[in-house]
């Protein structure tokens, strides 16, 4: 008889809870818990995997500038009002989780801060899903606006980001005060991921409120770097390196839809096949690869890709949950 080879993992991934229900002092309809893995992806016979990977629909506060036609087809009817967009993904596409990217605060667009805060306030009223809020990537603007967003969503237990090694203090302090979780971004680098988690926890934010963004490379565009960094981080977590035992958030949609193979039309690249399928497929393969590397939250864009990845995850967990 063959004796199966079981690894004796002694560590586990931290559990992070997003969203707060009225009982918990928030207004969200439900909460979402990620992390808690005691083995590698889908190896159910080896260790407990208490939480399925979840998918967050990415929406913006403004009409996106460079989203390809394949995405426009699904969203252009609601782009005049981001609140309609949020409602559409919540009600029509039955999103579990919403990721709002505040592109409007970027210096090149520079929307009024009060306008942005009003948007967030109304979003809380119109959609009662757990929220992820991310800035525009400009440190100065993010440091001005995100703490205010943190304040007006106090006690909703959002996931807010992102902080980096060079810019973490202001947002971490706000998130700590308002009862949220934080996204710690590192540039495909284990040491920086570790260092940043230490810096954040030194400010008093506990490890169970940190989610790591390892930085995503899409299929064909550096996917393998992200894949291996995530695998290494996850192995470290399972071997009890508590400092980097955080769940992962992966911005799959953002990176996949930058790939030429996702966007290019068939009349430009005939041999690549139909873009209506190629685009979502590019996002799906990127997502599945990162789920296998340990991704906990996938931020995605295409409704069909999201639906398929959900189906994939359900099938993998079937009879194992």
């Amino acid at each position: 008889m063959i004796k199966e080879y079981l690894e004796n993992w002694t560590g586990l991934v931290n559990t992070v809870k997003i969203g707060a229900t009225p009982q918990e002092g928030g207004t969200r309809r439900k909460t979402i818990t990620v992390g808690g893995e005691k083995t590698l992806a889908f190896l159910f016979k080896e260790g407990h995997l208490p939480n399925k990977p979840v998918i967050a629909y990415e929406i913006w506060d403004i009409k996106p500038i460079d989203w390809p036609e394949e995405l426009t087809n699904y969203y252009s009817d609601v782009w005049s009002d981001p609140l309609d967009w949020a409602e559409k993904v919540a009600n029509v596409y039955k999103a579990d989780l919403l990721c709002v990217r505040l592109m409007g605060i970027h210096p090149e667009i520079n929307r009024d801060i009060d306008y942005e805060l009003n948007f967030i306030k109304n979003l809380l009223k119109r959609v009662n899903l757990p929220l992820i809020i991310v800035g525009c990537g400009d440190d100065e603007k993010d440091n001005t606006v995100l703490p205010l967003c943190s304040q007006i969503t106090k006690n909703e237990r959002c996931l807010i980001g992102e902080v980096t090694q060079d810019n973490y203090k202001i947002l971490t302090a706000a998130v700590l005060a308002d009862g949220h979780n934080i996204i710690a971004q590192s540039p495909i680098d284990i040491n920086i991921a570790k260092q940043l988690n230490i810096l954040i926890s030194d400010m008093g934010l506990s490890f169970d409120r940190i989610v790591i963004n390892p930085t995503v490379g899409a299929l064909g565009y550096g996917l393998e770097y992200t894949y291996s960094i995530m695998e290494r981080l996850r192995l470290a977590a399972l071997n009890q390196d508590k400092v980097i035992s955080s769940p992962f958030i992966c911005f799959v949609g953002q990176e996949s839809w930058r790939a030429k193979e996702a966007k290019a039309r068939q009349d430009e690249f005939y041999s690549w096949g139909k873009e209506s399928r190629r685009g979502p497929l590019w996002e799906m393969i990127t997502a599945v690869s990162l789920v296998l590397a340990g991704a906990d939250i996938l931020v995605m864009r295409h409704p069909k890709a999201i639906e398929k990845i959900k189906e994939y995850i359900e099938l993998m967990f079937k009879n194992n949950f």
């Binding site: 299929l219 064909g220 996917l223 041999s271 096949g273 139909k274 399928r277 190629r278 497929l281 393969i285």
Partner: peptide, 11 residues
């Protein structure tokens, strides 16, 4: 289908 094969070969 080319889009399937392109995706899997790239992976």
């Amino acid at each position: 289908e080319p889009e399937d094969i392109l995706g899997i070969l790239t992976l």
